[in-house]
């Protein structure tokens, strides 16, 4: 399963980067520096999407008391943190030449940084609790508390005056990007998505093995309660 998603992710990455570097034209105001968009935006999208999916599994684990959903949430956190870090890093390397600053404390950047802290806090809380089931519950509550941050990140550029520009692509209006630039970005977003699925599948397998062991896994985990 994971191998299949890795393969798709690799193909999409090659295709997306080809469009991004060889098909997409230079931008009229940012020159070649805008090419960071092909990883910055997909990483930022994934950082928010993974958080939502992680909280969903954490909530299911909390309500239904299912181990597997809690383990899914557990498996997603490191990849989510990685995507958040990549979004922040590439953002800094994009902001320096275009805005003139590596970092500013505007609402978009600050809320994305809070997202990174939420991921790190989630993983740290889990690691600090020895009993895995108690860790599941405590970390699920933290994840659910942090969900409010996701719409804040997304809408920050509309709600407040920010240095960060508004969304080029959204559900409510047509994209404000040339077609080949948009295609490259969307293909890369799909590639990041497939990569995230592949990596979390691999990680959840490891977590199941570590927590349940082979024999007990078969006998105990079939029931929901």
């Amino acid at each position: 399963m994971a191998t299949f998603f890795f393969l798709v992710a690799a193909i999409l990455t090659v295709w997306g980067l080809y469009i991004g570097f060889f098909v997409a034209p230079t931008d009229f105001q940012q020159g070649e520096s805008y090419r960071i968009i092909f990883i910055h935006v997909p990483a930022a999208w994934m950082s928010m999407l993974i958080y939502l999916v992680m909280s969903f599994w954490a909530a299911i684990g909390l309500i239904m008391n299912t181990r597997l959903s809690s383990m899914m949430a557990h498996a997603l956190a490191p990849t989510g943190a990685l995507m958040t870090f990549v979004a922040l890093w590439t953002g800094a390397f994009w902001g320096r030449p275009t805005w003139g600053a590596w970092w500013v404390w505007d609402a978009r950047l600050t809320s994305e940084l809070i997202l990174l802290f939420l991921y790190i806090g989630y993983m740290a809380l889990r690691a600090s609790i020895e009993d895995p089931r108690r860790g599941d519950r405590a970390s699920a509550i933290l994840a659910l508390v942090g969900v409010v941050n996701v719409p804040i990140i997304y809408f920050s550029v509309q709600w407040w005056n920010t240095l960060h520009q508004g969304a080029s692509v959204s559900l409510t209006k047509s994209p404000t990007m040339a077609t080949s630039m948009l295609t490259g970005m969307l293909v890369m977003a799909l590639a990041f998505w497939m990569y995230s699925i592949a990596v979390s599948l691999m990680r959840v397998r490891r977590i199941i093995r570590d927590r349940e062991g082979n024999a007990t896994w078969l006998s105990e985990s079939s029931g929901v309660q």
């Binding site: 230079t26 520096s33 960071i36 390397f93 990569y195 990596v199």
Partner: peptide
């Protein structure tokens, strides 16, 4: 990269490094 090489490659290389670290760890 039209004078933006440091920034473009600084972004892409660190992203690639992150992916490699994650895969090696797994």
């Amino acid at each position: 990269m039209g004078g933006y090489g440091l920034y473009v490659w600084g972004s892409y290389s660190v992203t690639a490094l992150c992916v490699v670290i994650e895969l090696v760890d797994l």
